[in-house]
Design a protein around this nucleic acid. Structure first.
Lengths: 204, 204
DNA sequence: ATGGCTCAGTTGACAATGTCATGTGAACTG
DNA sequence: CAGTTCACATGACATTGTCAACTGAGCCAT
C-alpha cells in the first residue's frame, strides 16, 4: 500500500503542515522540533531525515504559504467576471487578510530568508509574478506595472507590519489600515496612468 | 565615589547598551543573557536584578533606539535653515538609513511589543509625535497631517521590510527602495493638498 | 567606629531546545 | 530467504532562559 518512499514523502508533508499549524497557533516559540514531530506523529529527531536544519523546515513552511497565496491569486486571475481593477484590489485585500489572520506565518513569509532555501525563493518568485500579471492587466501604462506593483506590495506590507507591530494607533494617526490601503490605491492610480497634472509642484 | 544606587543605574545602562550592540552586530541570536552580561562586565544572572525578563531587557533596547531616532528628529526640527519639506524628507531618509544600517535593531523597534513595556511604548509615542509635528509643518492641509504621516511612515516601513527581507529584487520590480520612497512622497503631496482632480476615476 | 542590615551581583542547578551519533526494525533486492 | 538500505527512534550533549541560594560591600543606628 504505502511504499517506503511514499511514506517518507507523507512524513515530510506532515512535518511541514505540523510546523505551519504550530506557527499559526502559537507563534514562532511554539514551533519546536519536538512539538512538530509529535503533531506529525513522529518523534523529535525525525525532521533531520528530511531537512538538514530547523531553518530549512521553516523555509519549507514559508514556501508552502507562498504557494497558498499564489493559489488564491490564481483563482482570482481565472475568475472571469472580475474586472482587472477588482482583481488587483482583491489581491491586495487578500494579502492584508493573510497578514491579519495569520501574522506569524505572514512574518515568516516576508522575513529574511535564511540559507539558500531554493524552494522558498522559487515560490516567492512565482507568486510575485502572478501578482505582477494582475497589476499589469489593471494598469494603464504597462511599462510602469513593475514599479507600481512594487509600490502597492511594499505599502501593503508596511500597513500590515505597522498593524501587527501595534504601531498604527488610530487615536494617534486618525486612520485605519484599510483607509491607508485606499489612499495607496488612489496613489497608484496617480502613478500608474500618467497623472497629467502630477507635475504640480507644491509643498506637501 | 560611586554610591550603590549609582552603580546599579550604571550597570543597567551597561546591560542595555551591551544588548543593543550585540543585536546590531550579530542579530537576535547573538543577544544571549550570558553574552550581554559578559559585555557589560557583569555575570549571566545580573540582568535579573534590573529586568524581570529577557523580553523586558529587549524592550528597554527598543525604547533606547526609539529615543535615539527621536533625538535625530529633534535635531532636524531645531535646524532652522531647513524648509519644512526638507525636514520631512530628511526624517524619512533617516528612518530608511536606520532600517538599512541596523536592520536587527529596526526590526526590534517595529516588532510587536511584548508584555506591557511602558518605557518602550512611551518612547515610541514621543518619537511618533515628533515625526507628526514635522509632517504637520510640511503639509498644506493640517487636518490631513495625521493620515498622511501614517501613510508615509507605513510606506517607508514597508520599503525597509521588503528590502531587508530580500523581497525587493530590482530585476523583478524595476525599482529601488529610494525610487519607491520618491513615489510615496509625491503621492503624499497629492493626498496632502487637496488634489482637486483626485476624483478622476480611471482604471489603474 | 562597629555590628547588623540591605541589596547588587555571583554561582549552582534545572528544564527546554537544537543537534548529532548510534541503534533498530521494516521495506526492498538478489 | 538472507542481506541491505533507509526512515525513524533514542540517548546524549551543549546552549540558553530562569530561579533559588549564597556572598560581600555599602549603608544605618548606636
Amino acid at each position: 500500500m504505502v511504499s517506503r518512499v511514499e511514506s517518507a514523502a507523507a512524513t515530510r508533508h506532515a512535518l511541514v503542515d505540523a510546523a505551519a499549524e504550530l506557527l499559526d497557533e502559537g507563534g514562532p516559540d511554539a514551533v519546536t522540533l519536538r512539538a512538530v514531530g509529535a503533531r506529525a506523529g513522529v518523534s523529535r529527531g525525525a525532521p533531520y531525515g528530511h531537512f538538514p536544519d530547523k531553518e530549512h523546515l521553516l523555509s519549507a513552511v514559508a514556501a508552502k504559504s507562498w504557494a497558498e497565496v499564489g493559489g488564491e491569486l490564481d483563482a482570482l486571475i481565472t475568475e472571469e467576471h472580475l474586472s482587472p481593477t477588482d482583481r488587483l484590489e482583491r489581491a491586495l485585500a487578500g494579502l492584508m487578510r493573510v497578514g491579519r489572520r495569520r501574522p506569524h506565518t505572514y512574518a515568516l513569509m516576508f522575513g529574511a530568508p535564511s540559507g539558500e532555501l531554493s524552494d522558498a525563493i522559487a515560490a516567492v518568485s512565482r507568486t510575485h509574478d502572478q501578482f505582477l500579471s494582475i497589476v499589469t492587466e489593471a494598469i494603464g501604462d504597462p511599462g510602469r506595472a513593475r514599479p507600481v506593483g512594487a509600490m502597492l506590495l511594499t505599502s501593503v506590507h508596511g500597513i500590515i507590519g505597522m498593524e501587527n507591530g501595534g504601531h498604527l494607533d488610530i487615536e494617534k494617526w486618525h486612520v485605519t489600515g484599510d483607509q491607508l490601503l485606499e489612499m495607496i490605491i488612489k496613489s497608484a492610480a496617480t502613478h500608474g496612468v500618467r497623472c497629467s497634472h502630477s507635475s504640480n509642484r507644491r509643498k506637501f
